[in-house]
Design a protein around this nucleic acid. Structure first.
Lengths: 253, 253
DNA sequence: ACCAACATTTGATCTACATCAGCGAGTAAA
DNA sequence: TTTACTCGCTGATGTAGATCAAATGTTGGT
């Protein structure tokens, strides 16, 4: 895909730069030799930013790349036979989206930007080739996919067994952990998704999400101001979630 | 792990035999050259059968192998902080279990036999090494993990959005597809798990599972005799499930 | 600055499913 | 055979959260 130069603000960023990308330790957290980083750089395409609501790839489209989120947020979803949207995940900076397309060679979901979002496109066939030459890269890919499996299974437990309070608390703490990992505050952040999208994702009605958050605020667990969230009583929130899932508990590096 | 020779009935089977294993086309469905199959054979250990209730690996245990089910059925589950079991999956012959352990190098779940079950143990470090030398094997592994991600996400949709009827129907049809893929009848099979385990997996009470199945039978959709299930009205069942998930719809090879 | 469209909150009511309880059938041990 | 269990089925009742309804806030376009 040709790189757009229409916007000078970004063209300078659209160059090889895994070396100095602040996310490199996260998106493919491996100790690569300099020459290997260069090889990785060469296959990665930086794309122009997606505006809010723009689609990165469509459900059913042919799979060719995975994408690392650099800034902003994406959601993946599919459209059910009854025409409603079902959100299957949110993706923050440093996270990889598109792995589920490998199997069938088509993306089984669509990915849409929740806000202005930039991604690195990584053509999968190149990545796979490169992984043959760099064992640590291959291992890293296996780990990433394994983690995704693990995380999704925790999500299954959440959906199948937890009540509304536990779902919302898990969701807020999960985001907190993800922000913390990138060096941001774990206790104050901005939601990039609407209440409706949260409810859709958690298997709850919008009204329930709203009520639970309001109640959490009344009870001094969190502070809510529109999309701004502050976690006031972290221990109590964690208690609500319970020892949670093992994947989350063992704590990702 | 030493192979037990205490049981002659099995010792003859505990030899290299991916070539003539009827599942080989499924467990790692690749066109491998003969010599490659041999190399794969050499790293695989066939273990003595597990009896019903025996544990293949425990949650928290160090990860070293993935396992291909040859006969029988396994369930994976984890124990929540409140001490209850949460089933995260059932595994039939030809299916691979343990992939979620790669990331943290520990199994995040336990795996237990639901009936007498035999598995092939595949030490992951060897498999990974071998995959460096056989690109098609590496690709196959990526595909398998991708499919698992895809399937789990469909399960998330099921748990989050479907009602009891749709859950049970999806479950029964999913098993049907898995039996069919292995060449068995898609319309008559035996459940290896209890109603309680089905309910646990689907996020339903036992009583609900029982009631739904009874109602399905009354309505001529299925025939139930204890653990024996016959699907009488397949089209109607499929309608109940809806166009379902994309992963399932595009149809695995 | 204004208006239209949409997002969020709150209250009232409804319902799918959980929970509780009781029953019969199968199975294993004594 | 009896006792003790476990498993599956069915009926009665309770409840978490969905749905319906309406007011209020927020946002983007012109």
């Amino acid at each position: 895909m040709a790189i757009s130069n229409s916007n000078n603000r970004f063209s300078s960023k659209l160059t090889s730069q895994c070396q100095n990308c602040s996310l490199s330790a996260l998106c493919l957290p491996i100790a690569l030799a300099d020459e290997d980083v260069n090889r990785l750089d060469q296959i990665i395409e930086r794309k122009r930013p997606l505006k809010k609501g723009e689609i990165l790839f469509h459900q059913g489209e042919e799979f060719d790349s995975v994408f690392a989120v650099r800034t902003g947020t994406l959601k993946t979803y599919n459209i059910t036979n009854s025409g409603e949207e079902q959100i299957t995940g949110f993706y923050c900076p440093s996270e990889l989206v598109g792995l589920s397309g490998i199997d069938e060679n088509h993306y089984p979901v669509s990915a849409k930007a929740l806000e202005t979002t930039t991604v690195c496109e990584i053509p999968f066939s190149h990545l796979e080739q490169l992984s043959s030459q760099i064992p640590s890269l291959k291992h890293q890919l296996f780990r990433l996919m394994s983690r995704k499996i693990c995380d999704d299974q925790q999500m299954m437990v959440l959906l199948g067994k937890k009540n509304a309070d536990e779902k919302v608390a898990s969701f807020l703490l999960n985001l907190s952990h993800r922000f913390k990992k990138r060096g941001y505050s774990a206790t104050a952040y901005r939601l990039s998704m609407s209440r409706g999208e949260i409810g859709n994702y958690l298997g709850l009605a919008v009204e329930t999400v709203s009520r639970v958050m309001t109640r959490f605020q009344k009870n001094g667990l969190i502070d809510v101001d529109g999309k701004e969230i502050s976690i006031i009583n972290l221990p109590e929130m964690e208690k609500l979630v319970g020892a949670a899932g093992e994947c989350a508990t063992i704590e990702h590096v």
